[in-house]
């Protein structure tokens, strides 16, 4: 069981309708989004998402000509209450792990933090040791 999860990243032009076009592709593929974020820079953006079946989404999008890749991220369950983020940040900071970016979603009573870090395996190790619950690839299916 791996706690390293595939996240897809798609290059998106910052123009009306471009995101809709991508969303349409995903819808046609019956993709289930667990979490996503849009980062914007100078005239373009990046759509990052954790989805139920990343490999097939990537294959379809590549065929359609999109610039798309997958990256390993980790997904940490946290308490949906004040201070939840601080504990995680502390653990990673103490272990000298750098967080590149992150985004979160809440479901029922729990929140899940998706993190892209510079050393994913070490993060999994230290977070588990500190008692955190990490989602596994299997948890994302269905």
């Amino acid at each position: 069981m791996s706690c390293l999860i595939d996240q897809i990243s798609v290059f998106v032009e910052n123009r009306p309708g471009k995101l809709a076009a991508i969303a349409e592709v995903m819808e046609a593929q019956m993709v289930d989004f667990l979490a996503f974020s849009i980062a914007e820079a100078d005239g373009f953006g990046l759509l990052r998402a954790v989805v139920s079946d990343p490999q097939s989404v990537v294959a379809v999008m590549k065929d359609l000509g999109y610039a798309v890749i997958t990256n390993k991220v980790i997904a940490v369950k946290m308490k949906d209450q004040p201070g939840g983020l601080k504990e995680i940040a502390n653990v990673l900071g103490t272990a000298q792990i750098n967080v590149e970016y992150g985004y979160a979603y809440t479901k029922n009573d729990s929140a899940v933090l998706i993190l892209r870090v510079d050393d994913a395996e070490k993060s999994v190790e230290v977070l588990k040791k500190a008692g955190f619950n990490l989602l596994e690839e299997e948890n994302l299916k269905a």
Partner: peptide
């Protein structure tokens, strides 16, 4: 952009631009 040149890092894309 060439699909093969795409990375997940905004900073790489900004640098390219």
């Amino acid at each position: 952009l060439k699909p093969s040149a795409f990375s997940d890092k905004l900073s790489d894309l900004i640098k390219l631009k």
